[in-house]
């Protein structure tokens, strides 16, 4: 028997609009071993400004889900609606932070951050101003002229954050963005992400297989089952922010999530 996790109802100030609807999403692939169902009837909604963690074991389809929401691959069935209109292709309203390094290696930190503004009709001054602001927000002003190959993993992910946040996406999709960092830098990046989120107020879908990461970040955790991937449980984390990493409530949650992941 699966021990049920107690779902805590969300308590947020005011009534938030649901902006992202994931509706009965299924996806499978044809492989050498025949058809494999990866996602099965996944459905959830996200409010504006909500931080949702998607927690599941390796191979349960987290990345696939994120790619569908990002518009990189089409859903098998079901649909993704952003503000009521279906998602068909990638776009700056839903930006992705990839797990691997996806910075442009021929551009400096500053140029990488400015990349997305190139096509926009704004005068140079205001673009430069924005780049400056986001360089500052991720704490990389001194490294503006570095090429990506001269940066550490954590710094690369900061640039990746800045270059999409500057486009003011409504939804930020993050696929285990800090998984390859050491514990110390991971904590730093989590804190940075939280402060950016509080300042900019975008919605975040954060994929992770790390329970403590989900617990420190999320308003709500979607626990995923493996083969086929479906959402087993929704857990609201009605905890005050800033959260203490070592606090009893968090450890309690962590322990129960660990347990749930194990079965």
């Amino acid at each position: 028997m699966t021990p049920r996790l107690k779902a805590v109802p969300l308590r947020r100030s005011g009534v938030k609009e649901k902006i992202l609807h994931i509706d009965r999403l299924s996806k499978g692939f044809h492989t050498a071993n025949g058809y494999v169902s990866v996602l099965d009837n996944v459905r959830f909604q996200a409010e504006g400004g909500e931080l949702i963690a998607i927690l599941g074991r390796s191979g349960c389809g987290k990345s696939t889900l994120l790619k569908i929401v990002g518009g990189f691959i089409p859903p098998g069935s079901g649909k993704v609606l952003l503000n009521g209109s279906p998602v068909r292709s990638p776009g700056p309203d839903r930006c992705v932070i990839f797990q691997e390094d996806a910075l442009f290696p021929w551009l400096t930190v500053q140029e990488n951050i400015a990349f997305g503004l190139r096509g926009q009709k704004q005068d140079k001054r205001s673009k430069a101003h924005q780049v400056e602001r986001f360089l500052g927000l991720v704490g990389l002003s001194e490294f503006r002229d570095y090429l990506p190959r001269a940066l550490s993993g954590g710094m690369k992910q900061r640039v990746a954050l800045a270059r999409v946040l500057i486009l003011q996406p409504q939804v930020l999709l993050m696929d285990e963005p800090f998984a390859s960092l050491d514990a110390q830098s991971r904590e730093e990046m989590q804190n940075l992400l939280l402060s950016l989120w509080q300042e900019l107020g975008h919605t975040i879908l954060f994929v992770t297989h790390d329970v403590s990461e989900a617990v420190i970040l999320a308003d709500r955790i979607l626990l995923m089952d493996k083969s086929p991937g479906r959402i087993r449980e929704e857990i609201g984390l009605n905890l005050l922010r800033p959260r203490e990493r070592e606090s009893g409530a968090l450890l309690d949650f962590s322990r129960r999530l660990h347990q749930a992941l194990r079965d």
């Binding site: 990002g70 930006c95 992705v96 990839f98 997305g116 999409v164 486009l167």
Partner: peptide
């Protein structure tokens, strides 16, 4: 991944060819 990153930042095909 670079082409995907470009696509999500709103880079269309032609510009993507030259920019990425």
């Amino acid at each position: 991944l670079l082409l995907q990153a470009g696509a999500m930042m709103g880079v269309r095909r032609l510009r993507g060819t030259f920019a990425i």
